[in-house]
Design a protein around this nucleic acid. Structure first.
Lengths: 229, 229
DNA sequence: CATTGTGAAGCGTTTCACAGCC
DNA sequence: GGCTGTGAAACGCTTCACAATG
């Protein structure tokens, strides 16, 4: 058994593996095998996509049978680097920072909160999700002592770049940014951004489309010249 | 001037327009024109991409000059359906629901919180971000009276599907889901999902890649075993 | 014989490169 | 001269369709 998978995994696949992992982890213990079609249904995607995604990890399925759940969970976890926890540091103890620190999903899924920092003296010392808020001056010490490589930016927009600079300076190489700001970081630092208002705006776009079902289905240049809408 | 754009806008473009809009809205008032290259730099993307994206809205630039900021803002807002506000309802007044209700970015960018509901009697009646938490039984009434078409699911995972069913039943046609759960909804309802732990797992994958240039499995046996505070 | 694994086709997105225009 | 707008090429992702196989 067990090929050497050493293939490059497409980014789109990487983005779906955590979802497969979550679903597989939540399955009943008495289900020991699962087919690509079952997993696809649970994940809301196409079965061919599931098979192709899993094929990048190696040949871990059995034709006519499906995938052994426990083994697949192990392989996906290994591929995602979840063989050990990744402690994270949260910068900003405002509403969002507090919600994130309290979010059980982080620690449950391998990302314990190693620290929370803020500049506001009123917040420093308070305990959120079992972690005491420290002054931002302690960020670098915290990152080094706890071997943190992932930082979460949950500051107001105006402080986000400073937060990122501090994180990078302390040695963090991945940042999850919740501030509505484009961060400049060295090329070797990964950034992912979650902008809550952007998500709503995308939904709003489709909402609006919904309510204008009127004209123009045609793609041809000629007919698209209609004068008014 | 001013063509009728009536083209189908690619989804990838729709997902970037809100970011362009945010950047354009934050520009200095004395900057009245911007080139695709300047906007691209600010957004962290390629200039050709900016031009192609904006070309789907129509020909709103001037060769040799760039795009008039105010006019472009207007056109992007119109395309995104931001000519009016879209009130949203939040289901779940836990840590995340509270943070979202307090998040100024929602109302600032066109998505005022029309209501927050929960099942917990201890939370009902409290005021968050200027909005009083109501019982979930009032959801449908609220959706109808305030003409809400976008719902935000911020419940624990076990309650997310029920929340979605209630929202859909009340007439909501777009859902932003923060629960780590795949929602089943009718085909004509749009769902976008934000899974905070998934974002960290994707970063973790790249982190791990970084530290495994070839085939050394354990190089930090000591550090990965630490669990102390 | 149900189901995987995968070439190949189909599609959407990004980037290039340059004609067109101010 | 500078910058947009856009065909066309390049690229990556998804889906199909079916041979391979436990």
């Amino acid at each position: 058994m067990s090929d050497r998978p050493r293939r490059r995994i497409p980014e789109a696949t990487v983005e779906r593996l955590p979802e497969y992992l979550r679903i597989l982890s939540e399955l009943d213990d008495d289900l020991d095998h699962i087919s690509s079609e079952q997993l696809a249904d649970l994940a809301g995607v196409n079965a061919a996509k599931v098979r192709k995604d899993l094929s990048y990890l190696g040949s871990y399925g059995t034709r006519g049978v499906g995938y052994e759940v426990a083994y697949l969970v192990f392989q996906v976890r290994r591929e995602l680097g979840l063989t050990h926890d990744w402690p994270v540091i949260i910068v900003g103890a405002g509403n969002l920072g507090q919600a994130l620190a309290n979010y059980a999903g982080f620690v449950d899924r391998g990302f314990p909160v190693a620290g929370i920092v803020d500049v506001d003296p009123a917040k420093i010392g308070s305990v959120i999700g079992g972690v005491r808020v420290r002054h931002v001056d302690e960020l670098a010490t915290l990152v080094r002592s706890r071997k943190v490589s992932i930082g979460v930016v949950a500051t107001p927009p105006g402080a986000a770049q400073d937060a990122a600079d501090l994180l990078v300076g302390a040695g963090v190489t991945s940042i999850l940014n919740f501030a509505p700001t484009v961060l400049s970081v060295p090329r070797d630092v990964s950034v992912r951004k979650v902008d809550l208002a952007v998500e709503l705006q995308i939904l709003g776009f489709h909402e609006q489309r919904r309510s204008v079902p009127s004209l123009s289905i045609v793609l041809d240049a000629d007919s698209s010249r209609t004068a008014s809408a």
